[in-house]
């Protein structure tokens, strides 16, 4: 399989995402100005500060030519993973419900966090066991997940709440400890922590590989 990793001016973690994806398949960078997704089977919208995030995190990147193609790709059922700033971009593009607000502590915070897998049957977590803990770093200043109570209830019923911060780990003040959510169709997923920074024991942990491996498995199954 092949991952396409978007690259905006101001992206920071795109090469990390590229290298992480290569643990389970091919991967290539896609320049934000290109509409051609280069035949990618799955898209990663990486972390960073696209366009400096001066307006609102992710608010400008969503209007880029590549994102137009990604929206069409997602609407056609393609797998799209948004990490950190990528999660913000997907929310801004309305591919995912809710929004990311400034952290409760109002500071950029970088910390290894423990996550709990709420849904192990999603296309982004199917390599995990239900309730499994993942140790993955998070680093952001706008990571407080917010949606209306009604939306959250609906998402919960529809199984869209995929990952949550383990007790005591929710430093950004996300509602219901939400760390990662998917859309109703289950093919678009965003999370604030960085699975691409948890693919090597030497640099901290390998728990993030499960996310990329799940995407590979989901694609393989869909082709059978």
């Amino acid at each position: 399989m092949k991952f396409g990793v978007l690259q905006f001016p101001g992206s920071c973690d795109e090469v990390d995402a590229l290298q992480a994806a290569r643990h389970v398949g091919d991967a290539e960078l896609i320049w934000y100005g290109d509409k051609d997704l280069k035949g990618a089977d799955a898209i990663i919208v990486p972390g960073g500060f696209s366009y400096g995030d001066y307006l609102r995190a992710g608010a400008i990147a969503r209007f880029s030519p590549a994102m137009e193609s990604v929206v069409a790709f997602a609407n056609g059922g393609g797998l799209v993973l948004g990490i950190c700033n990528g999660f913000q971009v997907l929310c801004e593009a309305h591919l995912l419900p809710g929004a990311l607000l400034p952290n409760a502590n109002r500071r950029f915070t970088s910390r290894q966090v423990q996550l709990e897998v709420i849904r192990a049957d999603s296309r982004f977590t199917c390599a995990c066991a239900g309730g499994q803990r993942l140790s993955i770093p998070a680093k952001h200043s706008w990571g407080r997940y917010y949606a209306s109570e009604q939306t959250l209830d609906e998402m919960e019923r529809a199984g869209q709440l995929v990952l949550r911060y383990a007790p005591g780990e929710n430093f950004n003040g996300s509602l219901r400890d939400i760390a990662g959510v998917c859309n109703e169709a289950g093919n678009v997923f965003g999370l604030m922590p960085h699975p691409e920074h948890a693919v090597d024991e030497l640099t901290g942990s390998t728990d993030g590989l499960a996310i990329f491996e799940s995407m590979r498995l989901a694609l393989k199954d869909s082709r059978v």
Binding site: C12, D13, V15, F108, T109, S110, P137, H194, H197, G204
Partner: peptide, 26 residues
């Protein structure tokens, strides 16, 4: 202090701040 800094981007950081006497970049 160092929690306010991204110490891991670029995926080289073997020893993060506070873990070892020197930073280690693979």
């Amino acid at each position: 202090l160092f929690e306010q800094y991204d110490s891991i981007v670029q995926s080289r950081t073997v020893a993060r701040p506070g873990q070892a006497d020197a930073a280690v970049l693979k």
